[in-house]
Computed example of a mutant assay.
Amino acid sequence: MKQPISRVQHGFTDYSYIPAVATAPETVGFTDEKTATTLCRVLAGNILLTSLFTRAEWGLVRAMPYKAHLMADVAVGAFAASAPWLFGFAENKRARNTFLVAGAFGLMAGLLSRPEEMSEVGATPAPSNE
């Protein structure tokens, strides 16, 4: 399957996901669900850190390989989708549905992004073995 999301586009998705998830308890209306609210902040912080440390045009430190970033996105997406049941807030429809959407978004971003590493010198993708 050809992944339609480029590395640069992936960066845009990350940096839009961060504020959306961080502010979801207020915008969606589940601040009374303390565990879900805390997890939103943790998820947003996790994506912020991995984005800042990813070896990509939008990374600040550029230490983490982009493929590792994509694997982290998939793992965080699966975690987010299962969090309502793991942490006991599945009965709260707003919180549960927010986490299902955030999880689906993370899974899609990780699985539908082309895994082309940035070259050491610039923004050119490294040759692919595919």
Rank of each mutant, 00 (worst) to 15 (best):
H10I: 10
T27Q: 12
Y66D: 00
I47A: 13
H69C: 06
V42Q: 12
P115S: 03
R62T: 09
G122Y: 06
H10M: 07
G122T: 07
R114I: 00
F105C: 05
S82C: 09
E57H: 12
A36T: 06
A90Q: 14
P84N: 09
M118Q: 11
Y66A: 02
G45E: 10
A104Y: 05
Q9N: 05
V21W: 04
M71A: 03
K67R: 10
A20N: 07
F89V: 11
V101G: 08
T124M: 13
A44G: 15
A75E: 00
P4T: 03
A95E: 05
T35S: 14
P19L: 09
I18R: 10
A72C: 03
E26R: 12
N129W: 03
E26G: 07
F87P: 04
V101H: 03
T23K: 12
E117T: 00
A44R: 10
G103A: 08
P84F: 12
A78Q: 00
G110H: 04
A102I: 08
A20R: 05
T27A: 14
M64R: 09
A126D: 01
H10S: 06
T13Y: 14
S82N: 02
P84M: 13
W85N: 06
D73N: 11
L111H: 01
S82G: 04
Y15A: 13
G77D: 01
F105H: 11
V74H: 00
R55W: 02
M64E: 01
I18C: 13
N46K: 13
P125A: 11
E120K: 05
E33H: 08
L86P: 00
A78Y: 00
M1G: 15
T31P: 05
T38Y: 09
A123H: 13
Y66F: 14
P4Q: 04
G11P: 11
K2N: 08
